[in-house]
Structure formats: C-alpha cells, structure tokens
C-alpha cells in the first residue's frame, strides 16, 4: 500500500484537456491551484505605453493528483499527452511518495480513502 503525489505545472488553457484525459483513465479527484512560475524561457515581455516591460513570472496552473503506485505511469502519461503543445512553457511534472491518505468524512485510511 503506497501512493504517489503527481504535481503537474501546466498551461492555464490546458486544464480542461488535462481533466478530461485524467478522468478518461479513471482519475476523478484532483486539486488545482493558480501559481506563478518560470522555466528556462524565463519571463515574458509585455507592451508598456511606449516601449516594453518584462514580467519575470508567468501565470500557470498546478494540478495535484494522488494515485496508487500501480497507476502512476498511466496518470503521468495522460497528463503529458494532454498538456503538451511542443512549445516552451508546457510545464513540468513532479512525482513524490505519499505516506498516507485520510478521507475526512469517514476517517478511512490508505487505499480505502483514495
């Protein structure tokens, strides 16, 4: 009984595609957070009244899904495929171990709570 947390930083406009792809694989629950961040592309240049200014952090979404170890690769590939455009700024996926899961309503633990 072990679980993984998948944190995917994605383009804001890709959220619906990612949700649909995850749901198609049977992953219904997820948490979405508005975040700001930067990758190798760094920030973005925007137009001022005359000339430009640089914004160093871009708005992104972070999607968190907790899955059984066994399902992990399936969830990751669903996100990868649905979030990819091929352009810089597609984001990153982080995977880390989760010790336990507790369902607040019933107090169930572990794989009963996932």
């Amino acid at each position: 009984m072990s679980f993984k947390k998948i944190e995917a930083i994605i383009r804001s406009e890709k959220l619906e595609e990612v949700r649909i792809a995850l749901e198609a694989e049977g992953f219904v629950g997820m948490t979405v957070t508005e975040v700001k961040g930067r990758g190798t592309q760094k920030g973005i240049v925007l137009e001022w009244r005359a000339g430009e200014y640089r914004v160093e952090f871009l708005p992104k979404l972070k999607v968190e899904v907790i899955v059984d170890d066994f399902d992990c690769e399936r969830a990751i590939s669903a996100i990868e495929k649905s979030a990819r455009t091929g352009q810089p700024g597609d984001g990153k996926i982080f995977v880390s171990p989760v010790e336990n899961i507790i369902r607040v309503r019933t107090g169930e633990r572990g794989d009963k709570a996932i």
């Binding site: 137009e47 001022w48 009244r49 005359a50």
Partner: peptide, 11 residues
C-alpha cells in the same frame, strides 16, 4: 507602437 512591436490598448 505597432511599427515598434505590438499595438497595446494601454498605448
């Protein structure tokens, strides 16, 4: 501003 780059509404 369009000649320079892009026409912003702020401009």
């Amino acid at each position: 501003s369009w000649i320079h780059k892009r026409p912003s509404v702020l401009g």
